[in-house]
Design a protein around this nucleic acid. Structure first.
Lengths: 220, 220
DNA sequence: TTGCATGACTGCAATCTTGCGGTACCGTAG
DNA sequence: CTACGGTACCGCAAGATTGCAGTCATGCAA
């Protein structure tokens, strides 16, 4: 939407275009034929690429449907919250890491966004399947969280500490999950969102955060 | 090993035998060639069945390697802990459900058991991949846990309640996971277990339970 | 003993996903 | 303008998994 980089070069422009074509094709086909009938081959054909290239752009069919970036999660992404963690209480520190890692991203495209919401309503499995990725991401944090917990010095042996860290992260992942799922359910009942919900994603984010902090308060 | 049912009928005996053959073949091949080289086709061939039949006995290659039953999880399995839940405090009630659902089963065959431990040491991914199943199982409990939590009457709105239930169950699943994983890690360091560890599985079980209860105490 | 309903086993085809190797194209240094 | 390094794309094949439909064995009733 904004014009941060005026012209990223032909290569990148083409790549972005292809990516957009895949996302659009995926959404259209899923909405039209259902999620089973929308095969990778079909989506790829509609996007004018080979099936092989499809997986060059998205990690999985589901990721393409939801438009999820590969989310490389370099150490860079963690640098800032980790630095901040030093002078925060454990709860805020953990929350910072989680937000940096598991944040529900969404680009500016409202059309696609609305259609994806519709897809999640019709096919809750896609959402579910993405939590696996979220869990994987979680594992990269366990060491950091362990250090944060260690600072508190409340957990004696190493196993206890590791267990706690794992549990705390699972809790965060589940909070995100629970927030998304209850939102999908309730949204299911009400009419398809028109314009009165400017940013449902933010609402999910908030709900998850509130769940997380309220639960962490009792754990840390 | 014991003689509970004298003769379950030819059909069932054959089925059990086939199952055992698959388990043995899977373990042998994995230990000999590594987990990648031990394809479903290879295992099936060695067990004298078709690849299709393989998936008739086990939900996945990993399940076969670890010898995991499909774990139908009928309502029957839940009947007893649910009945008991009525007159227990929430913590004990939840623990009862979790044990009934996520228990780490192992049959009496010590040979296979030892070999599986060795496999888990060499290929931690197999273990990891099984937690997906554990998560799936978890979802069937969320309603029951919600009711248990509701009895306490400490959570106002419905969303809060659902969120809590989801989180509590994630916590339990993670505790099991953490227990298994730290065990695999530490076992990694020490020499291959000989005979001094009569029942490592029980140790895991205990460790998980201790983690669960200690954490639940702070949440409920 | 015979016959039928049920469950077991199988081959086949479709899907998703990944690794490998080869070809075409973009950006840029000379 | 041209050659070169790096990407992008592509086809191919293997591997896990599932649905479908046909065949055969088993358990039980007549």
């Amino acid at each position: 939407m904004t014009d941060e980089s005026p012209k990223p070069g032909l290569r990148d422009r083409k790549r972005a275009a292809t990516r957009a074509r895949i996302e659009a094709a995926a959404i259209e086909l899923v909405l039209r034929d259902g999620i089973e009938a929308a095969t990778v081959d079909a989506i790829s054909e509609r996007a004018d690429i080979s099936a092989r290239t499809f997986f060059n752009y998205f990690e999985s069919k589901d990721a393409a449907i939801l438009g999820l970036q590969p989310q490389a999660l370099d150490e860079d992404d963690l640098a800032e919250p980790l630095a901040a963690a030093d002078h925060l209480d454990p709860i805020q520190a953990v929350v910072g890491l989680v937000v940096a890692t598991m944040g529900v991203a969404h680009d500016g495209n409202t059309d696609l966004h609305q259609q994806r919401i519709e897809i999640m309503r019709r096919h809750p499995e896609v959402v579910t399947s993405q939590f696996a990725q979220l869990n994987a991401r979680k594992n990269r944090l366990v060491d950091h969280v362990r250090q944060i917990l260690a600072r508190g010095g409340r957990f004696a042996d190493d196993a206890e500490l590791s267990g706690r860290a794992t549990i705390v992260l699972a809790l965060c992942a589940s909070a995100v999950r629970a927030a998304v799922e209850t939102w999908v359910e309730t949204a299911n009942a009400s009419a398809p969102t028109d314009s009165d919900a400017p940013d449902e994603v933010d609402l999910i984010q908030q709900r998850a955060l509130s769940l997380i902090t309220s639960t962490l308060k009792e754990l840390l």
